[in-house]
């Protein structure tokens, strides 16, 4: 009887694990299978031409560039805001300090706030300042979205930096500000991983840029231009009744999936390879 129960659950567990891992492969397989036939060089080298939305010539270069600008801009901005905060809670505050725990908890909570809320909030800020839907507006909303990811990822790595190293620096007479260098060098990989993860999240998120970044058929050239983004392009193309346009949604989804998977995989490799060489 015990043996039977043991075996039944073991089989269930294997099935469940196969379903979880299998869902990943099924998603990637479906996107590749539907996206590949619709893929061509024009898709990624041209902007939409006349009649693009009824299935005629053109590509999604404007969208790819808009997404890259947006993701790059917000990741860098988020890094500028996050770095001082993680340095502060890891170097200036004593371990177990009240402010440190509150900060960590609040970023855990902010991490869970959905992107649509950041989008709506970003939009109200934009109205307040009289901003129109633009690259800048999108960057603001997405920066808010990725700051928690950035802080959590960097904090996790910085917490593991051996205290002895920092103490050694203090013993030599360095101030905390000067010891920052050691902390940064020890957690460089973590910082890079954090940037990659934020970039991946930023480039894939649709709900936060829906009202804030706008959309256009032209390549974004300034911060006040609307920035068309990949997820929104996929969403719009898929809701079209025309088959050629839907096929473009699959191809665009393929482009986005490839970008995001490349980012996730490099983040993994990075963490694996370099965490070994740390002291």
């Amino acid at each position: 009887m015990r043996k039977l129960e043991e075996n039944i659950f073991k089989i269930l567990m294997i099935i469940a694990s196969a379903l979880v891992v299998g869902s990943f492969f099924l998603i990637v397989f479906t996107i590749v299978k539907k996206g590949l036939p619709a893929m061509n060089l024009d898709m990624i080298t041209k902007t939409p031409e006349r009649g693009f939305y009824i299935g005629k010539e053109g590509g999604i270069l404007n969208v790819i560039i808009g997404s890259l600008y947006l993701a790059l801009g917000s990741s860098l901005l988020a890094l500028l805001v996050s770095l001082p905060i993680v340095i502060y809670i890891n170097l200036y505050l004593k371990t177990g300090s009240w402010l440190g725990s509150v900060t960590r908890l609040s970023y855990d909570v902010l991490f869970g706030i959905p992107s649509i809320v950041y989008g709506a909030f970003g939009f109200t800020i934009m109205i307040y300042f009289g901003l129109k839907a633009s690259l800048l507006g999108g960057i603001i909303a997405v920066t808010l979205l990725v700051i928690p990811i950035m802080i959590r990822t960097m904090d996790e790595v910085m917490r593991t930096v051996p205290k002895e190293l920092l103490d050694a620096s203090y013993t030599l007479g360095a101030t905390r500000l000067e010891t920052v260098k050691i902390l940064l060098r020890q957690s460089a990989v973590g910082i890079l991983t954090a940037i990659l993860l934020s970039f991946g999240r930023a480039i894939g998120d649709a709900a936060s840029v829906m009202f804030t970044a706008g959309f256009s058929d032209n390549i974004t050239t300034s911060l006040t231009d609307p920035a068309p983004t990949l997820p929104l392009a996929i969403f719009f193309q898929l809701s079209s009744p025309i088959e050629e346009v839907q096929a473009r949604a699959y191809a665009s989804a393929l482009v986005l999936t490839i970008i995001v998977l490349l980012i996730s995989i490099s983040a993994r490799i990075l963490t694996k390879r370099f965490s070994k060489n740390k002291i």
């Binding site: 990943f24 099924l26 995001v260």
Partner: peptide
């Protein structure tokens, strides 16, 4: 070592791609 990375990769897939997959499958 095989399962965990794929679970991680799954978390990186953008919501809109899940949406496309949902519509297709």
């Amino acid at each position: 070592k095989v399962i965990v990375p794929f679970v991680d990769l799954l978390s990186g897939i953008p919501p809109v791609v899940f949406g496309v997959w949902g519509v297709l499958v």
